[in-house]
Design a protein around this nucleic acid. Structure first.
Lengths: 159, 159
DNA sequence: CTTAGAACGTTGCACGCGCATCTACACAGC
DNA sequence: GCTGTGTAGATGCGCGTGCAACGTTCTAAG
């Protein structure tokens, strides 16, 4: 607990932490390139793309605000503003929920689906170039196994 | 190229993209927990921690602003502001570069090293709990191999 | 029916970031 | 020497985000 700086620091440069930092770098770099591509080719931020995609995949192309926020890893307020922008651009609409007057659906419009279809190839190409094509089939499988171990766990916080 | 929405969308939900999105989620979730822990226990944002760590690992605990910006994946302006804050808190100092009057070093102060030493265990514990402990030794090795494939590549943009 | 508490979404505020721009300096070439 | 091009950092500005607080609505207890 009460280590001097010199003592406790040894472990900081361990392989372990290097691995985590590499993961961080990889994810950030891929996301940066992806966002830049989407912005240049379709004037669509990555976060917006992901919202449209989630809505597209949802039944009836609609999702509760709360659900959506969880899926795109955004705070509720952050999603409110993002949906504001998407609605202003006509890509999404808000619709009241009949069974729960508090609830609101974000619904993908036809224009939104079209925009998503436009941007999809760019996104797909970026993910392949930056990520999928770098690894062989075996590695992708192992990657899936590891990510499955990582993900449910991070949602199940102890205590 | 000119696919209808229905056509081009099939591939969007492919395993491939799911994998990328899982990677994204994993990284973001881990970083969120890490940042929350550092903030609660040491009032230190993750980005600040990473700057201090980079400086600590650098020869003479100093780095050029430009170098540092690359290492922490921040824009130059972003780093300028961040160093402003760290300097205000006495964790870092700016020092002129004798060989290049344009250059500035960011130098870790003793207070900065102490703060880093305080926060280190929290960081380490978080990374272990969220990431390292979830995988076995074999997987960690494979992870390292994959990340090595991913990382240099994302820095070597074609065209 | 009334009331306490929780849940859903929105809004005020401050913060942190990136882009474009600016200044200062370095390193050519003349 | 001077001038033009490139680089290192800093600054003005706008944008996007999270936190805390708020209004509204649902649910449960009395």
């Amino acid at each position: 607990m009460t280590l001097t700086a010199g003592e406790s620091m040894e472990s900081f440069s361990s392989e372990e932490l290097t691995l985590w930092r590499m993961l961080q770098r990889a994810q950030v770099r891929i996301a940066q390139v992806l966002e830049a591509d989407l912005l240049v080719e379709h004037d669509l931020p990555l976060a917006s793309y992901e919202v449209l995609l989630q809505l597209f995949e949802a039944p009836e192309r609609r999702l509760r605000m709360n659900d959506l926020a969880d899926r795109v890893l955004l705070s509720r307020s952050g999603l409110t503003r993002l949906i504001d922008r998407l609605q202003r651009d006509g890509l999404v609409e808000r619709e009241a929920c009949t069974s729960d007057a508090r609830g609101l659906f974000a619904v993908l419009t036809d224009a939104g689906a079209a925009r998503l279809a436009e941007a999809g190839p760019t996104y797909l190409r970026g993910v392949r170039a930056q990520f999928l094509d770098m690894l062989d089939a075996d590695e992708l499988r192992q990657c899936a196994v590891m990510l499955n171990k990582l993900l449910p766990a991070s949602g199940t916080e102890p205590c």
